[in-house]
């Protein structure tokens, strides 16, 4: 039974690797400044939730970065624009494919 469970878990692990997609995350303006990079790559599940994706991304960055994405109650700020392959997202679940681009835009004003 142990061997069965080990083999089952190994198969599940392989399936998860197959179903995960590698996508490009791009940042703008103050998000980019806080990230220190203009883009990054992430492995995500095909039907990843937007909230989960942003928390996953924020986990790898500073508090200042996180504060741009989330408010004090850890809710996503609605002023953050999420663009998936050049289209504003319509749903809280993203159907992503390998090499898709997610652009996360922080608000900007004038000058």
């Amino acid at each position: 039974m142990t061997r069965f469970h080990d083999e089952r878990n190994e198969v599940i692990g392989v399936l998860k690797m197959i179903m995960n997609m590698r996508i490009k995350i791009k940042y703008t303006a103050q998000l980019k400044k806080e990230a220190g990079v203009s883009e990054d790559w992430k492995e995500v599940e095909q039907g990843v939730g937007v909230e989960d994706l942003l928390k996953n991304i924020a986990a790898g960055h500073s508090d200042a970065f996180r504060n741009i994405l989330f408010d004090e109650e850890n809710n996503r700020r609605q002023s953050i624009l999420i663009i998936h392959n050049n289209e504003q997202i319509q749903s809280e679940q993203l159907e992503v494919n390998e090499n898709d681009e997610i652009l996360i835009m922080s608000p900007i004003a004038g000058g």
């Binding site: 103050q30 741009i68 700020r77 609605q78 002023s79 922080s106 608000p107 004003a109 000058g111």
Partner: peptide, 21 residues
């Protein structure tokens, strides 16, 4: 519609060239 809540993180001072504005 673009910004449904207040962009609290916005800071008005940033580097700028006149050619961009």
């Amino acid at each position: 519609c673009l910004y449904p809540d207040w962009p609290k993180a916005w800071k008005r001072e940033f580097p700028v060239f006149g050619a961009v504005s």
